[in-house]
Computed example of a mutant assay.
Amino acid sequence: MANHKSNLKRIRQDKKKALHNKYYAKTMRNAVRKLRAVTDKDEAVKLYPSVQKMLDKLTKTNIIHKNKAANLKSSLSRHIAALG
C-alpha cells in the first residue's frame, strides 16, 4: 500500500476513473449489441449515427482504442449494408 498522500489520492482518483470508464464502455457495448440485433434496415440506419458518435467520443477520451472503434464502425456498417 502507498505511504505518500499523493499516492493515496492517485489511487482514489484511479478507482473513480475506472468506474466511470467501465460505465461508458459497457454502455457502448450495449449500444453495439442493440444495433446488431436490429433486423430492419431503416431502424438500423437511424440508430447507426448515434452509435458512431458514441464510439468517436470514447475514442477521443481514450476509453477505447481508435482501431477498435474503426473496426466496430466498419463491421456495423457492413451489417447494415447486408440487411435487406
Results as ranks from 00 to 15, higher is better:
Met1Cys: 08
Ala2Ile: 03
Asn3Thr: 09
His4Glu: 04
His4Pro: 00
His4Leu: 13
Lys5Asn: 14
Lys5Phe: 08
Ser6Glu: 11
Asn7His: 09
Leu8Gly: 01
Leu8Gln: 11
Leu8Lys: 15
Lys9Asp: 02
Lys9Cys: 00
Lys9Gly: 00
Lys9Tyr: 01
Arg10Phe: 07
Ile11Leu: 10
Arg12Lys: 14
Gln13Lys: 09
Asp14Ala: 14
Asp14Gln: 14
Lys15Cys: 00
Lys15Phe: 07
Lys15Met: 09
Lys15Ser: 08
Lys16Thr: 09
Leu19Asn: 11
His20Tyr: 15
His20Met: 09
His20Trp: 12
Asn21Ala: 06
Asn21Tyr: 13
Lys22Phe: 07
Lys22Asn: 14
Lys22Met: 07
Tyr23Lys: 15
Tyr23Val: 13
Tyr23Asn: 14
Tyr23Trp: 11
Tyr24Phe: 15
Tyr24Ala: 03
Tyr24Ile: 04
Ala25Arg: 14
Ala25Gln: 11
Ala25Met: 04
Lys26Cys: 00
Thr27Ile: 07
Thr27Glu: 15
Met28Arg: 06
Arg29Leu: 04
Arg29Ser: 03
Arg29Cys: 00
Arg29Pro: 01
Asn30Ile: 01
Val32Thr: 15
Val32Lys: 13
Arg33Glu: 09
Arg33Lys: 15
Lys34Gln: 13
Arg36Gly: 00
Arg36Cys: 00
Arg36Tyr: 12
Ala37Ser: 13
Val38Ile: 14
Thr39Cys: 00
Thr39Phe: 01
Thr39Leu: 04
Asp40Tyr: 03
Asp40Lys: 07
Asp40Leu: 08
Asp40Glu: 14
Lys41Glu: 09
Lys41Cys: 03
Asp42Ile: 02
Asp42Met: 03
Glu43Thr: 12
Glu43Arg: 04
Ala44Tyr: 06
Ala44Lys: 08
Ala44Cys: 06
Lys46Arg: 14
Lys46Ile: 04
Leu47Glu: 15
Leu47Cys: 07
Tyr48Gln: 10
Tyr48Met: 11
Tyr48Glu: 05
Pro49Leu: 08
Pro49Ala: 04
Pro49Trp: 03
Ser50Arg: 12
Val51Ile: 09
Val51Trp: 04
Gln52Glu: 13
Gln52Asn: 11
Gln52Arg: 09
Met54Asn: 13
Met54Ala: 12
Met54Ser: 11
Leu55Ala: 06
Leu58Glu: 06
Leu58Thr: 06
Thr59Cys: 09
Lys60Val: 02
Asn62Arg: 15
Asn62Tyr: 14
Asn62Leu: 09
Ile63Leu: 05
Ile64Asp: 02
Ile64Asn: 02
Ile64Cys: 04
His65Gly: 12
His65Tyr: 07
Lys66Cys: 02
Ala70Cys: 01
Ala70Phe: 08
Ala70Val: 00
Asn71Val: 02
Asn71Asp: 12
Leu72Asp: 14
Ser74Cys: 02
Ser74Phe: 07
Ser74Met: 05
Ser75Arg: 15
Leu76Gly: 04
Ser77Val: 02
Ile80Cys: 08
Ile80Trp: 10
Ile80Ala: 06
Ala81His: 11
Ala81Met: 10
Ala81Gln: 13
Ala81Phe: 09
Ala81Pro: 00
Ala82Thr: 02
Leu83Thr: 06
Gly84Leu: 07
Gly84Tyr: 08
